[in-house]
Amino acid sequence: MTTKIVLVTGGSSGIGEATARTLAARGHTVYAAARRTDRLEKLTDDGIRPLAMDVTDDASARGGVEKIVEEAGRIDVLVNNAGYGSYGAVEDVPLDEARYQFEVNVFGAARLAQLVLPHMRRQRSGTIVNITSMGGKIHTPMGGWYHGTKFALEGLSDCLRLETAPFGIDVVVIEPGAIATEWGGIAADHLRERSGDGAYSAQARAVADMLSSESNRSRNSSPQVVADAIAKAVDARRPRTRYAMGFGAKPLIALKWLLPDRAFDAIVKRAVGVRS
């Protein structure tokens, strides 16, 4: 297996941390990026190189990529994992917050792709892995802005795949289902803050309770299942364009494709406890 130079964003916890450790264990040289490098120190025992990076700051993103190329001479894989979920009714979420979610989840990933592509084109090889979600194929109440970012990243990835194929560059989409990370609790907190009172409070409370419930957390899949799928794509000679894994991902994506919109709406409302 050829050793590859890999950048993993959002590498300090959850899927990013599991991915960095898995790829390093497979012999790759891994740079794990996060805004706070103190949270990355735990990875250094595995030979993972910490990298300070804010994906929403152009100078920070550019400096991180330049540092990798300067030290390693190339960059072979970008794993765009940095992202977060800010839930709340579309009407309630301030546009500044909505824009910031797009800055992190979409424009941050796109900017890093822009920065690594000149190096990958010169190499005539490379892999860009974009972590979307089953939320890039399905929808839930109170998640409009989050789902919007994931749908956008799905479409961006498809176009990028067509554009970069002539240069030997693969673009892979990873679509996790429900994963046992901090994500659910953070999303629930945002939801209660934005829509816990007012016109959408009944829906907001139901969705927040589902996101933060112990029963929900107990059935969620380990971040390792996502890390394993990413590693499979990174090591494949010809990776698939999409990998769906984790609790609920494959059946819900299939149902969304098969069912009329209103029938799928009814299933989603029942699943999240919304009765109206």
Rank of each mutant, 00 (worst) to 15 (best):
C159N: 14
R217L: 10
G185N: 15
S276K: 12
G108K: 01
E91N: 08
R242E: 14
G198Y: 13
S125H: 06
A231G: 09
R49W: 03
N80C: 12
R240T: 04
S12L: 12
G85F: 08
R124G: 09
D261N: 01
V6A: 10
T140Q: 08
A165R: 13
K256I: 00
A61H: 03
G135V: 01
A110C: 06
I230N: 06
I174E: 04
I138V: 15
R62C: 07
A208P: 00
K4P: 02
T22Q: 15
G196A: 07
D76A: 02
A188V: 00
G10V: 08
G248A: 06
R217C: 10
V6Q: 06
N220F: 06
T22M: 13
D209W: 04
Q224P: 13
G83W: 02
D261Y: 00
L115S: 03
W145A: 14
G185V: 11
A24V: 10
L115E: 02
A244R: 04
D189M: 12
E163H: 08
T164K: 04
V79Y: 12
D76Y: 01
P50A: 11
A188C: 06
A236K: 05
E103C: 08
G196R: 06
Q123E: 12
G126H: 02
L162A: 15
G135C: 13
D54W: 10
T132K: 04
Q123H: 10
G108R: 00
A187N: 03
Y200P: 03
S157L: 11
E182G: 15
A82M: 05
G273K: 03
A98N: 07
F151L: 03
A109Y: 06
F167C: 03
N220A: 14
L191I: 07
K137N: 10
Q101S: 08
R238M: 15
R39W: 11
A110H: 11
A187G: 08
I267E: 02
R205N: 10
M210D: 11
G64R: 05
V90R: 00
V268W: 00
V79T: 13
I186G: 14
K250W: 12
G185W: 11
V274A: 03
P176F: 02
